[in-house]
Design a protein around this nucleic acid. Structure first.
Lengths: 245, 245
DNA sequence: TGGCCCCTCGCTATTTCTGGGGAGTTATAA
DNA sequence: TTATAACTCCCCAGAAATAGCGAGGGGCCA
């Protein structure tokens, strides 16, 4: 059973068409997910990622009912796994997360009802352009058994997450071909200053150029990035990893 | 022989003090790097990362002369390995990189002179807040041998890169402790709209509130984030993963 | 129940940014 | 060699953001 949730952020004809185009790759990942689940004998395996353009995809072994419920209720915004792993580098046990908020508890209760399992282990992976993926195993077992399981298979899971990710990358739009917009060194410096909260006057002083020149850089960078204003340009530059703050 | 290049971006008293504080951890990583090099019988192993605050660190087995040369000449800005891996997710063989630019060829020539080796394999890893690390092996050997070596040890190296990274994270400033500022749902929505390039008027319309109210959210978010202006607030919110664009 | 935070709305004046225009030098690339 | 692009400087007028003030209703928690 295949499911993609490319519709999370926007429901459009393009999203549906894209999804169809990608269905064969997703199906393949789907079947791999089932194999992994069976191999490790856990309840579920889910791979879920946010593409560089903000679209979300997923494949895994959750029941269709749970996926629909998740989407319908917009649990993405409450799910502590999503929020908790976002700032993590390395594998995270669900027990380490913060389930204290009201929404999170409600979510947890429902998840267990839908057979997700009380234990979970998620491996976050990140790429440029805001790509963010989660490789998750969940099961219904005791704390001790789960700890032993994750400890034992930790390395395998990291490698599996990597492999899954490599596959998912094939679905990424414009990975190669379309040249990534590149800013000139000065433009990068200018945008970086703005991202640090400096006004144009301050930034110009810092770069030892006139404010007019600085403005030219910003305008130029804005156009290259296809941004509507300075704030947008900074956001895009950060998202694409062009600047680091 | 330990080397840290925390001074790349700024040379300040704080940088030096920080470096001293971290020296024991760096030394440990240094010795691990040497062990790995010996185990795999390659010429060099280097682990190099950009911390979330933009400071750069490294440890590895390059000669002190080469490191100094690299820093002195600011090769960081020319090095195709840095630039080429920045947008990559997965292990990269140096042969796949673009060595065509004038600066790159000069750099390559010197690197070989300093004993870096003609072959290299780098594994990029990313985390939130712009963290970006490279785990690199280099050697002096034929294309065929190198291909066989990397193919064979690929999985090991991914795991080693992960482990190294975990160690490096201990040196990250403010990983825990300082409570992460949280924005209210409305504030998040407001900041998100701005990050998407909307003006305040547009954002207000989109959220179906008055522009004045929207402004209150933005001001509030700005203060919570300790930001100097809207652009800065958006940058910080993105950096901390509070908003996703 | 009192305190705290979230959500909503209003006004004014000042500062800053944005969007047009043009122009010269240098360096790298075709 | 001639483009092409990067870097630098300048003017102006209109649009937008910022800083400061204030006010009321609703919900959650101790």
């Amino acid at each position: 059973m295949l499911w993609g949730f490319a519709v999370l952020m926007k429901t459009s004809l393009e999203a549906i068409l894209e999804r169809l185009e990608k269905s064969s790759a997703l199906e393949e990942m789907q079947s791999v997910a089932e194999s992994i689940r069976d191999h490790y004998g856990v309840s579920h395996l889910v791979y879920h990622w946010v593409s560089s353009n903000g679209e979300q995809y997923g494949c895994g072994t959750y029941s269709m009912e749970w996926v629909e419920r998740y989407l319908e209720k917009e649990y993405l915004r409450v799910d502590p796994v999503i929020a908790g792993c976002y700032n993590k580098f390395h594998p995270v046990d669900w027990k380490q997360l913060d389930w204290s908020s009201k929404g999170a508890r409600q979510f947890q209760k429902e998840a267990i009802e839908y057979g997700v399992g009380n234990q979970g282990y998620s491996i976050p992976i990140r790429g440029p352009n805001g790509q963010y993926a989660l490789f998750t195993l969940s099961d219904d077992t005791s704390d001790a058994d789960w700890a032993e399981f994750t400890e034992k298979n930790r390395r395998d899971l990291i490698l599996l997450a990597h492999a899954m990710n490599e596959k998912a990358l094939e679905l990424e739009p414009g990975r190669e071909g379309p040249p990534i917009t590149s800013l000139s060194p000065r433009e990068v410096e200018a945008i970086t200053c703005l991202a640090l909260g400096q006004s144009r006057a301050q930034a110009a002083q810092r770069l030892s150029i006139s404010e007019h020149t600085l403005r030219v850089y910003i305008e130029s960078a804005r156009h290259k990035l296809g941004a509507l204003n300075t704030t947008h340009a900074v956001a895009r530059a950060m998202q694409r990893g062009i600047i680091v703050v």
